[in-house]
Write a protein that binds this DNA or RNA. Structure first.
Lengths: 223, 223
DNA sequence: TTCATCGTTCGGTCCATGGCGAACCATTTC
DNA sequence: GAAATGGTTCGCCATGGACCGAACGATGAA
């Protein structure tokens, strides 16, 4: 049996901006492939490999190979508990909002929209019958197909991507699913290029612009 | 409105061998002056100052001046919980001997009882129906309320404290929950003032006195 | 007042390590 | 087979930050 890391080794493994963000990304409960983690932390694949090796050596993450992908997940629920404890201290705000307001409202979840914004959009699409729920994913209905094309998103290149099309992603601040996968990423990117949302510096937080508020209300009837 | 540090700042503050060792030292529940922390981590006073400033800036420790001394303590019970969670992951070694016996048996966890002692007491209270399990905390039942009053603990001032009342704290040596929070601290303090347990010098370890063994057996039927 | 002690500031050294690009395997797809 | 894609290895650079000694306030004791 392998011994766990001692406290200083563990602290060293946790105590890096990129690595803690990787753990944060993995807190969503989903397994992520190395590339997603690299992208989500804004780091090159080479650097990501080094970080992931270190995290794995500290027994904080586990990896399994799936074809030419390598998928990572938190090693144990205990690790998740630890990361949660870190988050709790990090956002130790006196008010009940365990998550800072900007992040609750709208934020990136590595390449798609999360927070209330992502959830609201997803809900609207579900209510309108453009999406339907599957066990582990969403399905795009015919009306949804038309809607996305109409919205200005060409579905051809989205379908061609070698990744899940419309994944369900459990939000850790809202505790509900939102749209992820290639479709979620395409939606986020489009909404972004429309100027509806803007990046907050040094944060996954997003800002909904005035024009974005109008557009979101018109197209989704929410927010 | 004191916003906590963001997660990366926090991780950076935690992720250093000397600083995590300082936090570990402060887990004994005692306040330590800067020099003790410097000596305890084997580092010069100048270096210790830098580390302590960083810890304080991340709101992990609090300091007060007493004469020409500066005494440090963990900022909040939440921080203690976080350090405990780190320890839990760190010693996740299959070799139980990794934890010295005295610490396994009875020890302080910041301000409440841990180890087998803390766990045994918690179990006894649960079995007797004085406590019940909630998702993230314990709840004090009516019979428990009577029991605590009868035991000599006035619950009024405990309830007035601005901290969680009866938190669940995962023990890093026993891998099970024990009673923490304001109620756990009050219980520890009371058991301490009864002379049932005594501090081991320079350690988080506690010694159960002969009188304490009788008392614990009578009141909790354990140990 | 004078001395001792504690902590801080400052200047400087030095090493660990996070970061990248490029070349290199491995695997799947066509 | 060839091409595309994901991941790893390697060499290298740059920066951060951990550390110390020495000089310097501040506080309490003699």
């Amino acid at each position: 049996m392998n011994a766990g890391p001692d406290l200083t080794t563990l602290a060293g493994a946790v105590g890096d901006a990129t690595r803690i963000r990787m753990l944060e990304l993995l807190m969503e409960g989903r397994a992520l492939v190395a590339k997603e983690l690299a992208f989500g932390t804004g780091v090159s694949p080479a650097t990501a490999t080094a970080h992931l090796q270190r995290l794995e050596q500290a027994r904080l993450v586990r990896s399994t190979r799936q074809g030419r992908n390598k998928v990572f997940r938190l090693a144990t629920p205990t690790v998740a508990r630890m990361v949660e404890a870190l988050m709790t201290v990090a956002v130790r705000s006196p008010r009940a909002s365990a998550t800072p307001e900007p992040l609750r409202a709208a934020r990136y979840c590595y390449d798609h929209l999360a927070g209330r914004l992502g959830m609201g959009i997803t809900d609207a699409l579900l209510r309108a019958g453009h999406l339907s729920l599957r066990r582990r994913a969403f399905a795009l209905t015919p009306s949804g197909e038309a809607w996305f094309q109409d919205f200005g998103i060409d579905l051809e290149p989205v379908r061609e991507q070698r990744r899940h099309f419309a994944h369900r992603c459990l939000d850790w601040s809202e505790r509900r699913d939102h749209l992820a996968g290639a479709l979620g990423a395409a939606l986020a990117s489009h909404v972004f290029s429309l100027g509806w949302v803007e990046r907050q510096p040094d944060s996954r937080g997003l800002i909904v612009t005035p024009g974005g508020q109008r557009g979101l209300k018109r197209h989704f009837g929410v927010l």
